[in-house]
Design a protein around this nucleic acid. Structure first.
Lengths: 198, 198
DNA sequence: TCGTCTATTGGACGCTTGCGCAATATCGTC
DNA sequence: GACGATATTGCGCAAGCGTCCAATAGACGA
């Protein structure tokens, strides 16, 4: 294995563990066991465990963003791009990804490395939404007098609702999140009810 | 010190530590040191550290809720109660309180005691909002075909936006949060622009 | 004054953590 | 085939954690 491959393997293994145990309780030994190697190897490629965790979080967050960005780009119109956004942002089988976001937000205030990554990626999501909204307004599909605010509102409402599902699991369920967020977005963008659903 | 006073002292000390170090990395020894007592004493009053942390978080969250509930109750109408809600939910000088919410949401998945408290208090906030909305609809001040969903949307949008300020500090600022959330709520409840502001 | 009950101490226990380090395996190069 | 570089091992270290417990201190009623 080349150094680059090995670094990648470490990040992948870290991710696999973090999915099950959470970012905060992922240990060097866990990662080593997941790779089938020794724990010392990880410190041969990374200065500290914090850097490993930050790299893992960044990878997952960037992959999710890249996937949504690609699928939204392939959509035929801003309206269907927005529908794709809702489907890809709230996948049923990826609670662990959102749990990583919760961990990151909580840790951001105290860990500069995490704050930088988290802020950059949140901004990137908002930017993706804002560009889509502006395109929709330009194409006459959406109506919005403040695309910046609209993008933040759509994103933050989804975050706030999804948070309830992932953190508590009992307050509201996944269907509520998607239904309520989609409905708010339709209102926000001047669309008729049901256009963004399904 | 009576048992009640001691319990209270433990919770207070835990809070003081948690505000600085975060809920997740507050240890028994930290709390004992903050009180100037031994660590064993804490386990004489609490079954586990999880319960201490949950009690500390609950104290802050219940105080905030009680304050909002009281002030909203003193408001003359559902509309002004809703305006009071926005002013009390986003206080300038209490970032640390919202930071504890972030900690709690992230830890909820791993610590049952925290999950229970966090879920209960989130539900209580939603319930407070839902009751206000229903009162407003009954009084002919609001328009809403689903007060439950409306309450969750208003609360979650505010959480999602506030999260950006507290976690990152750079993406958006406090004024944006209040302005955007208020605007969305006015839309949600069929109010004219500016009614909930100031 | 004595006895009892409880608050409080302070350290031991077992476990886990990130990290460092000497020893070993592996592999490309001459 | 030998050698040097480096990838990899596996264990040890010191520190930290929550929890538990025997011992002590102190207050209060009999």
């Amino acid at each position: 294995m080349t150094p680059d491959q090995r670094r990648e393997a470490i990040v992948d293994a870290t991710l696999a563990v973090a999915i099950e145990k959470g970012l905060a309780s992922t240990t060097v030994r866990d990662v080593a066991a997941a790779m089938g190697t020794s724990s010392g190897l990880i410190h041969h490629y990374f200065e500290s465990m914090d850097e490993v965790l930050a790299a893992a979080f960044e990878q997952v967050a960037r992959q999710d963003l890249a996937l949504s960005e690609r699928l939204m780009g392939e959509a035929g119109s801003p309206t269907s791009a927005m529908a794709v956004f809702f489907r890809t942002y709230t996948p049923v089988d990826k609670d662990w990804s959102f749990q990583l976001w919760l961990d990151a937000w909580a840790e951001a205030a105290r860990r500069p490395a995490i704050r930088v990554v988290s802020a950059r990626l949140n901004l990137a999501w908002q930017d993706l939404l804002e560009r889509t909204i502006r395109a929709g307004v330009g194409a006459g599909e959406f109506r919005s007098d403040d695309p910046t605010a609209a993008a933040w509102r759509i994103l933050s409402l989804l975050d706030g609702l999804a948070l309830q599902v992932v953190a508590h699991g009992t307050t509201i369920d996944r269907d509520d999140v998607l239904r309520w967020a989609v409905r708010a977005a339709e209102e926000e963008l001047g669309l008729s009810v049901g256009v963004l659903a399904g």
